[in-house]
Design a protein around this nucleic acid. Structure first.
Length: 437
RNA sequence: GGAAGCGUCGCAUAGAGGCCGAGUGCAUCUGUCUUGAAAACAGAAGUGCCGCAAGGCACCGUGGGUUCGAAUCCCACCGCUUCCGCCA
């Protein structure tokens, strides 16, 4: 959510930004609604002030006739006040609804474009592997090695679900272990920051296993509940399943005021993510690239406003570091205005090379949210001069397990159908190859 | 799931219709004293909204209600604690 004062003072910026996202905003309506809200607020408060004043007099008034008269007057005022309060409540509800429809302001360096065709490749890393044979897709390899079973999962639980088995499970746990070591080691993180030439105060990430349930009100504050059909809902319990650990991690400090010295705060969440994929019928139906359920390591950080762009660059540097550890070729993409997330100021994606599909596929996302979520959440910082303002937030994928497995399987495949285990993961697994057991 | 009790300013507590936006203790910050600190003493200190300001309004778990007036009374919900039952 944006600040209404900012909207009133910067109409052109808000409108231009929304337009670049492909949304037409009618700010006239919002602003006249806000005028109404302010007028109504003033009238309600004036009545309440009178009520307070007269009530204070009533308690000391000695003369019974005057007293009685005052009470009668207040009975009338009370009726009027009630009516105006109800009006105000109605206006505020409409106002809030309108406010929630306004997307965040995009950064100046975000490419302008209508959809993903407008995304810009910022840099690429790694050599695409050369094969002396035609590389296969992950689902074919995975099924043959009996490490991915979507067929049984579909029978037991439904489509877009899978049994992950054997050495592929070991790969997942190895990835987690490797990441925990990296993300809690200050020297490693400092080196990543230095190499990427980002200037941030380096602190370790706190590992977290968050709930996979979240209250819809929290999800609204996180600006991640725009389309109910994308979520698994439990209306009887007023709960829903998270689509990412970002949702529960970001909401962790609702209604909290930090001090400047507390910043930055960095968390590494590991959680299952649940997505209905309502709008993607027929897309990526093979294998495990697009699942209703997948496990993900997710970074969520809180920092001072002046540091949040550097913070995002730091998170991207970490993403690149771990992909380089796995020697997976990738490209970093600046996501354009028409394709980026509703609450984002700036979004950078990483697409990893998938030889079986012969293209780069999105595996990582880094979202600079700024104060868009924290303003709704009430997560704030008290500056040294005493001023209180919303904290800035960033979230970014460290590894989406499913897609990382896909990338490993396809990049490390051998002609005989076996898969070489990336070198960095071997110490955790104790072998160098996945073969049919 | 059943029973009882409880949710007040960072923490701990007081408050039982108007003298309460709220007292006290601890913690915090600022002065005095001290070479410095501690102690002692004095003082400051919640959040949001409206307003140029003066000032006003709201907030005692949440939402309703009663009343001229609610932290205080009533109702519902949520949460916590203890006991019983069940359970990894």
């Amino acid at each position: 959510m944006l600040d209404i004062k900012f909207i009133r003072e910067n109409r052109d910026i808000v409108e231009a930004s929304a337009k670049n996202r492909g949304r037409n905003l009618d700010l006239d309506e919002l602003i006249s609604l806000d005028d109404k809200r302010l007028a109504s607020l003033v009238s309600v408060e004036a009545l309440r002030a009178e009520q307070n004043q007269v009530s204070n007099k009533i308690k000391v008034e000695k003369d019974d006739t005057t007293r009685f008269q005052m009470i009668e007057e207040m009975k009338v005022l009370k009726e009027d006040l009630k009516k105006r309060e109800d009006d105000l409540k109605e206006i505020i509800e409409a106002w809030q609804k309108a406010m929630l429809q306004i997307p965040n302001i995009v950064s100046v360096d975000t490419p302008i474009g209508p959809d993903e065709s407008g995304n810009k490749v910022v840099r690429t890393w790694g050599e695409k592997p050369q094969f002396s044979f035609t590389p296969k897709e992950h689902d074919e390899l995975g099924e043959a090695l009996d490490i991915i079973d979507t067929k049984t999962a579909t029978e037991v639980a439904g489509p877009r679900l899978a049994y992950i088995k054997g050495d592929l499970v070991r790969i997942q746990f190895a990835l987690i272990q490797m990441c925990l070591e990296i993300m809690t080691n200050v020297e490693t993180l400092q080196k990543i920051a230095d190499d990427a030439k980002v200037s941030v105060k380096v602190t370790p990430f706190m590992p977290v296993l968050p709930p996979v349930f979240i209250k819809p009100v929290m999800q609204v504050k996180m600006a991640r509940f725009m389309t109910p059909e994308e979520h698994y809902l439990f209306p009887n319990d007023d709960l829903m399943l998270v689509g990412s650990a970002e949702h529960t991690l970001g909401a962790m400090y609702a209604d909290t005021i930090f001090t400047e010295a507390d910043m930055p705060l960095r968390y590494l969440g590991y959680s299952t993510a649940f997505r209905r994929e309502a709008g993607s019928y027929g897309r990526d139906t093979k294998g495990i690239i697009r699942q209703h359920q997948f496990d993900k390591l997710e970074m969520e950080t809180f920092c001072l406003p002046e540091n949040s762009i550097q913070e995002q660059d730091f998170l991207v540097a970490i993403q690149e570091y771990v992909l380089q550890k796995l020697k997976l070729p990738y490209q970093v993409v600046a996501v354009c205005t028409g394709d980026m997330g509703f609450p984002d100021v700036r979004q950078l994606d990483i697409e990893t090379w998938m030889p079986g599909q012969n293209k780069y596929r999105e595996t990582h996302s880094a979202d600079l949210i700024g104060s868009f979520q924290s303003r709704r959440l009430g997560t704030r910082i008290k500056r040294a001069d005493g001023k209180i303002e919303p904290v800035h937030m960033n979230d970014a994928t460290l590894f989406a397990m499913g897609r990382t497995m896909v990338a490993i399987i396809e990049n490390y495949q051998n002609e005989d159908g076996s898969i070489t285990i990336p070198e960095v993961l071997r110490p955790y697994i104790g072998k160098d190859k996945i073969t049919l057991e």
